[in-house]
Nucleic acid binder design. Structure first.
Lengths: 158, 158
DNA sequence: AGCAATTCGCAAAAAAATTGCACATCTATA
DNA sequence: TATAGATGTGCAATTTTTTTGCGAATTGCT
């Protein structure tokens, strides 16, 4: 019988994840000495964590205001109809929208919660038109403008 | 008169940001050939983008389910009192909480919107006790459990 | 036009990541 | 208990990437 991929994560892996979750540009040599392994061992573990999908991706976080897109808006969307194919179409639309940085399908009165980035309210207005009015299946949506992004991209506690 | 840091971002910078926002492990050589610059030029630009804070940080995104913390919960918090010092204390508490991955201070009826990661509802329960009941200044909070994280960590459109 | 400041590319140097390999550890099984 | 297989490690060598020095080209400003 073939062995399953068996994604086993030991304490070394957890320590590595704790570190790269905060700074993935840290040299493997530094990671190695902090957790008590050799650099090649760290490299092999990192490679496996990436291939197995435990590390989903590695990205730079850019300061929105520095690139003139200072507005973060949280949107609560209620659907007209909860038919699966219609929901899938909505997810797809949100997934594809460049302004939508995050999309959650949630329980409760609301159906979707979006976190959106725009340069100004005009862009937001246009986005709502495309995404909610022309897109279809949206009963209503509620807009919360963020006055302050107190915390973003926090690490997952391990 | 001394010149200010003058964070000027040209088209090359924008292209670099587009790329590293999706994959910051891409070698500078590859970035260089894609945008039509030499590797050292790319390196210098990246360094400046990081030092100037246009790139806020570089992180690995880990798959929550793979590390046995599968629950994403969106929480809407309403405050008792909007005194500045009390609000700051709340922000500080949310900022420090390991479960809170994101925190937005927003306009509207709600005051804070949190995005939380927990391994199960027991952990969430305990967190609400610490953060909302014992923490003080919370009038009420509403809990939305995410059934599906349709999109996370989307890039800022440039 | 001309000067100063910036930014570039190339080539060399330094640093980091990867690979090959021998050895240690653990498991399952004869 | 012995043993074969699988897994994972560290070291050393190799390869790749990043960084640095420097002269040349470009840009901005007077």
């Amino acid at each position: 019988m073939k062995k399953r991929p068996a994604v086993t994560i030991d304490n070394f892996d957890l320590k590595i994840l704790q570190l790269v979750q905060v700074d993935n540009m840290m040299p493997q040599r530094v990671i190695a000495e902090r957790i008590g392994l050799s650099p090649p061992a760290v490299a092999r573990r990192l490679q496996q964590l990436r291939e197995s999908g435990v590390i989903r991706k590695d990205i730079a976080i850019v300061n929105e205001t520095a690139v003139a897109r200072p507005l973060t808006i949280i949107v609560h969307v209620t659907t007209e109809n909860e038919r699966l194919d219609l929901l899938d179409a909505m997810k797809d639309r949100f997934l594809r929208s460049r302004q939508v940085q995050q999309c959650y399908y949630v329980t409760g009165e609301m159906d979707f919660i979006l976190i959106v980035n725009v340069k100004d309210m005009a862009e937001y207005n246009e986005m709502t038109r495309e995404l909610f009015f022309e897109g279809g299946n949206v009963k209503s949506f509620r807009t919360c403008v963020s006055m302050e992004n107190v915390k973003t991209n926090g690490p997952i506690p391990l």
